[in-house]
Design a protein around this nucleic acid. Sequence first.
DNA 1: CGTTTGACTAGTT
DNA 2: AAACTAGCCAAAC
Length: 119
Amino acid sequence: MENQSKNLKKTRPDNIFERVYEIVRCIPPGRVTTYGAIARCIGSARSSRMIGWAMNSCHSQPEIPAHRVVNRNGILTGKHHFRHENLMQELLQSEGIIVEDDRVVDFIHLFWDPYKELI
DNA sequence: CGTTTGACTAGTT
DNA sequence: AAACTAGCCAAAC
């Protein structure tokens, strides 16, 4: 009972994290979004750093296309957290996204706004 | 239990 | 234009 809820609390990712995962899962292949956009979508616009933390824990949750989340300039800031340094870029390129110098080419047009699309 | 850190961003100097 | 600041908040130390 008490122990269980304790365990649950430890096991259960915070709601914010689940919300983040939900949004990230909704990013269509071949599109990207930003930490800030997700943060805005879950209602705390200035908590973009938490999105990064959420991604850090997302390996426990399969089916999270974390490679489609880049920073506001379309730069692959999170690439070092993948199994291999180039995995993020390879995944993006396998979806038709051109990556040059760790930056998503034509990022502005590939940007997928969860706030608009997931209202 | 206070401090530091971080896959960020927007604003100011 | 580059550097600095502040806000945010959960883990790690």
